[in-house]
Nucleic acid binder design. Structure first.
Lengths: 222, 222
DNA sequence: CGATGTATTGATGTGGATCAAAATAAGTGG
DNA sequence: CCACTTATTTTGATCCACATCAATACATCG
């Protein structure tokens, strides 16, 4: 049984079903538990991953103890792409599971062999990294041109687009204020205040560890 | 006569001299004049480039008129890598020559054919984009964890490392305060004040459009 | 029911942006 | 070579968005 998430993975785009099956056959499925580190910053990139289920937070702790979150990964997202290189680069951050889940794993050797066999994989790797780069450029622009409130709104909408479950006319996000604040580069205090304001206005509603977006339009800033 | 810059290009790393010659043979050399846009944001990525000489500023203007600089490119740097994809992505920014210079140009079709012939090119493309991504992650960390002064110091040192000509015991950078301020995400006013302070302390000296780093160690913050 | 993670709310402080103005330097064309 | 425009830099005064600090409340859970 193949998870639907993996079939829509960018890393496996434009590859025939038969080839996908072969590629998946040489992967190992690994269960990961919440809070477990899947890859660790600096370590030699020995494996390539596709997230099957769960959520991964990719982050780094600076020498001064500040934690900076690069991005969240959702089912279908590939990471550890440096492992595709002949001489793998070190992982640029630590990838930690936010909840129990599963990843597909290929060793450096295996994924290299597969890429040689299916050039589309190399092409997809480039496409994925370019997308990550674009995402980062957008985040940078957001950071230097938008206010804390606007950034938070953007993050909520992006997040909803990536993982939101639509129920009725609303989107439910499983995320804490603290996690949102890290993605928007806003302090948890300012985040709390803004979220409260929005809840009061009826744009969102909140539970501990959850946000329901009720009026997405109200969060569009641009 | 082959420019030495191109031989050290990351995009051509680990390729034999003979193959490099063939690859270069199918490129076109294009002269670009200062202030000329080589690629324009949003346009279909039809060409891949390697900068031979000169300097390129890769930036975007937001809908509110703010200019955000993604990065500067130096001789040997490749850009327009989205053109390697079967269905090219649009250029994510505008690349503008900062002075007269030259670029190597390959069309989408040609570079795809070359990549098929020399898989190392695809590998290098991935490596280069991964490096750009790492650079962006670093910049992000700098932005959210360091002060304006520290960011400015970092940018000076990085810049010096990338393009500085060493003369005597000092490094000469051809860059205006305004350009530095854009790379460090600091206002031009704060930049001016900090530079003045450093000049006063003897860490650097200044001319219009130039910076001489005299005591690099004094700028190391970490 | 302590313990631990999450959220709220007020008070306080400040880094650095923004605004305003002018000085300096470098072209440019007559 | 001068008058004039245009780019770069400087310097002071002002302001505020947001971080930081401090305290409390609430929820969850073993």
């Amino acid at each position: 049984m193949i998870s639907p998430a993996v079939l829509h993975s960018n890393f496996l785009a434009d590859i025939g079903r038969k080839d996908i099956d072969k590629i998946l056959a040489s992967a190992r499925v690994k269960r990961v538990k919440a809070k477990q580190a899947i890859v660790t910053r600096g370590e030699h990139a020995q494996y390539l991953f596709i997230l099957l289920s769960g959520r991964v937070r990719y982050y780094k702790i600076t020498r001064h103890g500040d934690e900076v979150v690069f991005r969240w990964l959702f089912p279908g997202d590939a990471f550890g792409l440096g492992s595709l290189l002949k001489r793998p680069t070190p992982y640029m951050g630590t990838g930690e599971a936010l909840r129990d889940g599963e990843v597909l794993v290929w060793s450096h050797t295996k994924i290299r062999a597969l890429a040689a066999l299916h050039p589309q994989l190399s092409e997809n790797a480039l496409k994925v990294v370019l997308q990550y780069l674009r995402d980062y450029a957008k985040r940078h622009i957001r950071l230097v041109t938008k206010s804390a409130e606007e950034r938070l709104a953007d993050v909520l909408l992006i997040f909803g687009h990536q993982q939101g479950r639509v129920g009725g006319d609303q989107v439910e996000l499983e995320v804490t204020n603290e996690q949102l604040s890290a993605l928007a580069d806003v302090s948890i205090f300012t985040t709390s205040r803004i979220m409260s304001k929005w809840a009061h206005k009826g744009f969102i509603s909140k539970e501990r560890g959850k946000v329901f977006i009720r009026v997405p339009e109200a969060l569009v800033t641009d």
